[in-house]
């Protein structure tokens, strides 16, 4: 019985801490507003993670290849294309206009993804 009350008690404390943290969150977010957070896509096990990424205008998106085989990042409409990325190599592209940008791996074309720029 005593143990059960302790759990309720600690849950209550935990909830209080969370409320306090959430209350301070807007302040932190406000401080970051001028600089877009780094947008990274992991190329892992022949998939893009995440396969759809939404970013603000002028964001730079970086793809990092975590596979043992090379991949090539290429937009469907030819707007951008990386060189072959070997393991741990990266490719970055800055999206200056809003829109939806579909891309794929030009040597493993079943790998597809998109960047939504708002």
């Amino acid at each position: 019985m005593r143990k059960a009350w302790w759990i309720v008690g600690s849950s209550f404390t935990f909830a209080l801490v969370m409320v306090a943290l959430l209350a301070t969150r807007p302040l932190i977010a406000k401080a970051d507003e001028t600089k877009a957070p780094p947008a990274e896509i992991k190329v892992d096990n022949f998939t893009f993670g995440p396969d759809t990424l939404t970013v603000a205008v002028n964001s730079t998106v970086t793809w990092v290849n975590k596979d043992d085989l090379p991949h090539v990042i290429a937009s469907n409409d030819g707007l951008f294309k990386s060189k072959a990325l070997d393991t741990d190599q990266t490719y970055s592209y800055t999206f200056s206009k809003p829109g939806t940008y579909a891309y794929f791996c030009s040597i493993h074309p079943k790998m597809v993804g998109k960047i939504v720029v708002q």
Partner: peptide
């Protein structure tokens, strides 16, 4: 059959 591959294709 490895050139000009299309997104989503073979």
């Amino acid at each position: 059959n490895v050139m000009n591959l299309k997104a989503g294709g073979l």
